[in-house]
């Protein structure tokens, strides 16, 4: 770990615009600092700025950036109105990490790519221009969608996948003031700037996440992984389906573990909306999701895995209640 300066913020204004890395739960940043994957000169600690409440916001909900993952997953309003979010959070990490990790920090977590974590390996995300170790290397966990020749890393989180499906909005504040970013647009594709994980600009800080009114329906988060707990998604499917008269009145889908960002495909959702469910239709939706999908060798299985998992999730979400 490199020596660094540490200051503690007492209000969001102390951190907004500060020339420092923000630290909240520290469940990811500290690990990366120990490995010198991250070498910030200055840290500003926002654990004492408030922003730690879940509040009603009209029909929706406003979640402070410092709300801990375990508190958010257990929040009665979330469990009632946005169960998808609760399920996705509980599918991630371990109880100990969720106790510490925050809503804003979770959105900012970095990829788990082996080569990103190894400072002796090439990685365009860690060291732009050094190359990509994962292409041609061990890439079981890597992206099948939206990757570039510079980076095939995935966004590893679960919470953001649910937020993307729920059309959540992230409220941020920077030196130029406040702005909002759709959760689905928050993370970026790697392109030729894989060092940028998301749209947050220098000096900006996440204040809160806003959930629009509950969608109801069936909400399913299915995470497929190499062991049943404490493992990152190989593929995860977040689905909200509202059935009306035997047809899918609303269908929202987002996918984790397959791209540099939670993957949302409006075309797939349109295909489903207004239609009666059928395996053939689910397969066509999978075609739309997987348009342009490409394996890297070790992760080729993710393509059929996504298709099969999506089919099973949609079948479950649309089955007649018993």
């Amino acid at each position: 770990m490199r020596p660094f300066d540490y200051t503690r913020a007492h209000a969001p204004a102390d951190a907004v615009g500060a020339e420092a890395r923000i630290i909240a739960g520290g469940t990811n940043l500290l690990d990366l600092m120990k490995l010198q994957v991250e070498t910030p000169d200055r840290l500003i600690d926002i654990n004492h700025v408030g922003l730690d409440r879940v509040e009603r916001d009209g029909d929706g909900l406003r979640i402070g950036a410092l709300v801990r993952n375990s508190d958010l997953a257990a929040d009665p309003a979330v469990r009632e109105g946005w169960p998808l979010l609760s399920k996705a959070i509980l599918a991630g990490a371990s109880a100990q990490i969720r106790n510490r990790a925050t809503t804003g920090g979770n959105l900012m977590q970095r990829t788990r790519c082996y080569y990103f974590y190894d400072i002796d390996a090439p990685c365009n995300k860690r060291e732009p221009g050094s190359g990509c170790g994962a292409i041609g290397g061990n890439n079981r966990q890597h992206a099948i969608l939206g990757a570039s020749d510079h980076c095939i890393a995935t966004y590893p989180g679960d919470m953001a996948v649910a937020m993307s499906a729920l059309d959540a909005v992230i409220e941020v504040e920077g030196p130029a003031g406040k702005r909002e970013i759709r959760a689905a647009d928050f993370h970026r594709l790697p392109g030729d700037t894989p060092q940028r994980d998301n749209e947050l600009q220098s000096g900006e800080m996440i204040l809160s996440v806003r959930l629009p009114a509950p969608l109801g329906g069936r909400q399913i988060y299915r995470k497929v992984r190499d062991r049943r707990s404490y493992a990152f998604a190989l593929v995860s499917v977040a689905a909200v389906v509202v059935m009306e008269a035997g047809r899918m009145a609303t269908a929202r889908l987002a996918f984790g573990g397959v791209a540099h960002k939670p993957w949302r495909v409006p075309a797939a959702e349109s295909l489903l909306t207004g239609q009666p469910p059928s395996p053939e239709l689910f397969d066509r939706a999978a075609d739309a999701v997987l348009a342009g999908a490409r394996g890297q060798g070790h992760n080729d299985f993710k393509i059929p895995l996504l298709r099969r998992t999506l089919g099973a999730v949609l079948a479950e979400a649309t089955q007649e209640s018993k």
Binding site: Y114, Y117, R227, R228, S229, Y230
Partner: peptide
């Protein structure tokens, strides 16, 4: 490459 306990999987 998977030289930590997050990626070297033992049963949870």
């Amino acid at each position: 490459v998977n030289r930590d306990l997050a990626e070297y999987h033992v049963p949870a």
